[in-house]
Amino acid sequence: MKARHHFHIDYRGHSVSATVQTGHRPVVEVLVDGKETGHATTHHDRPVTVNVVLPSEPPIPVSVRATPGPGVPRCLLLGPEEPEGHVMAPRIF
Rank of each mutant, 00 (worst) to 15 (best):
N51S: 14
T19P: 04
D33W: 03
A40E: 14
R74H: 12
G13H: 01
H86Y: 12
P70N: 04
D33G: 06
G71Q: 06
V48I: 08
C75P: 00
V87F: 09
A89D: 15
G23P: 03
H24Q: 10
A89P: 02
E84A: 13
E82C: 09
P47R: 07
V28A: 06
T19N: 03
G71V: 02
V48S: 10
E57R: 15
P55T: 02
T19Y: 02
A18E: 07
E82Y: 13
L54G: 02
T67F: 08
V72G: 05
F7L: 01
S17V: 08
M88E: 03
P26Y: 02
V52H: 04
E84K: 15
F7V: 00
A3S: 14
M1G: 09
S56Y: 02
H39R: 12
C75H: 00
H44Y: 15
G23K: 01
T67K: 09
A89K: 12
L76S: 06
H39Q: 10
T19C: 08
Y11A: 05
E57F: 13
I60H: 01
R65C: 07
V27S: 11
P58R: 01
A18T: 07
P55W: 05
P73M: 00
R74P: 01
F7Q: 01
R74D: 11
E81F: 13
S63C: 09
P61V: 13
V52M: 13
L54H: 03
E36R: 14
P61M: 05
L54E: 00
T49V: 15
E82K: 09
T37E: 15
E82H: 13
V20C: 05
P68F: 03
P90M: 04
E36W: 02
G34V: 10
G34D: 08
S63L: 03
K2S: 14
H24R: 07
E81L: 08
I9R: 07
V30Q: 02
V72M: 08
E82D: 14
G34C: 05
P47M: 09
T37Q: 15
L78W: 02
P59A: 14
T67P: 06
R12P: 06
P68S: 09
V50E: 03
C75L: 03
G38K: 12
H8F: 09
V30K: 05
A3V: 11
S15Y: 09
T49Q: 11
T42C: 05
G13R: 01
V72L: 12
D33M: 03
D45P: 00
T37C: 13
P47D: 02
P68K: 15
H43N: 12
G23E: 02
L78D: 03
G79T: 08
R4L: 11
H14E: 11
S15C: 14
P55C: 05
R12E: 15
V52N: 06
L77F: 00
K35G: 08
H39I: 00
G71D: 07
I9C: 06
V20D: 06
I92G: 15
T19W: 03
T19L: 09
R91C: 03
H5F: 11
V64A: 10
H5S: 14
K35S: 10
A40D: 14
E81V: 09
A40T: 04
P58Q: 11
R65G: 01
G34N: 10
H8L: 08
P73T: 01
C75K: 00
E81A: 10
